[in-house]
Design a protein around this nucleic acid. Sequence first.
DNA 1: CTATGGCACGGATT
DNA 2: AATCCGTGCCATAG
Length: 465
Amino acid sequence: MYQLQQQKTRPQITAHLAQTMNLLVKTVQELGEEINKELAANPALELNEEIRCPQCNRPIPTGGYCPVCTKPKIMSPEETIVFISPRIDFTPQTERNEEVDEPSTIMLEELPVHVFKQIAPDLPVEDREIASFLLNQLDEDGLLITPLSEISEYFHVSMERVLAIQSIIQHADPIGVGSTSPQQALLVQIEMLSETKNIPEFTRLLIEEGFGLICQLKYRELSKKLSIPIQKVKLVGEFIKNNLNPYPARAHWGSVRQPEAFDSQAYTQPDVIISFLNNNEENPLMVEVILPVRGTLQINQLYKKAILEADENKKSDLKAELEKASLFIKCLQQRNNTMQKLLEKIVTLQRDYILHGDMKLRPITRAQLSKELQVHESTISRAVSNKSVRLPNGQIIPMSKFFIRNLNIRALIHEIIENEKKPLSDTAIVELLDKKGIKVARRTVAKYRALDGILPAHMRKKYNK
DNA sequence: CTATGGCACGGATT
DNA sequence: AATCCGTGCCATAG
């Protein structure tokens, strides 16, 4: 008897878990697709109308009250609101004074002008027209979409001349603009950077030979293919992430990049948005876990009734669909619940970091959090991986950045070096850190330096002034 | 002799 | 089980 029951309930529970896990890994975009798929496939599932807050017109979660309008009055600035935000676009309802949210349109108009101003003096008058034409062929990433050959044909000039112009453009401010591919952009950047920074060996080779693989961080394969030690390949990967930008026109690149492919969705819609309530720094932090639908998923009531009147032999099929629908809803709720709990914890722990930057990042591990939240480690891992978060300052970071254990020290070293009067040797830096109560090996300092592409002490002096 | 980079090992994390 | 990360030891450059 008991056995039977076990066998009957078991598969359901695991199905539930499996689906929840499945949903947990998904980013907003993927989740959106999943929900739409389910919605289309299952008539028992429906999307009700979205509810908006009567005061601020913000789409609000199922419960009914608007987290933005109702809560702040009873909250102190140190507190945090975390909620699930059912919406697709993330343009703030309040004002339209946002220039951050529309980088592409602004860039499209501004970028060519911006670059042209820089290079015009270096160009003979006859070439300016070509340059300006070329600059208008850039996509929103700052890459050239028209083949150079077409341009040379169009103007009836030699390829060399076009190349020369392109080269000048590439060396202007967003270094690498006007390249024909992310690869080329990277190469130009390396060339420029090599004057002030230390480029790891093989960087060039890896970009030329294994660009695709590098993007996907297939270090293993790369090291086999080009027979380079895997350690070195990783170093190069790190370096590229930290110092180069394959899409010159995109802001917020720098140290902010993440494992995934370079063109991942991190730049479009973040999974979580952290901001000050009503953009006022006095207010509490507001954390929105984005749900990619308007409205709320629910069981179709008509469908429920229809079951009662249906043929006996069809009833079970219909019921199965109903089950599936309610399971899906449950799983989705659980996913949201987990995300919400997790974000609450993260924001509490990393508040200083969110407000004040890299140096305040606290070293925390997923394992710690999993204990505090009473969930399995892998749950946290899933929830964190592939997700992106938008900070109040507009930066979009991978969620995993909250768990980088040594970022604060790295930032500290960075700062020490920037404020140094005389170039400090690694050992000197170790001593400085030691006085601050941080004990690190000399070798480690060297490694961090290399990661950020900072030259060793004796090479640094010349470029500092 | 000092400052750094290379390699590789072992413990922690995922 | 796979990967990440700090470190120690050694080689090399200046």
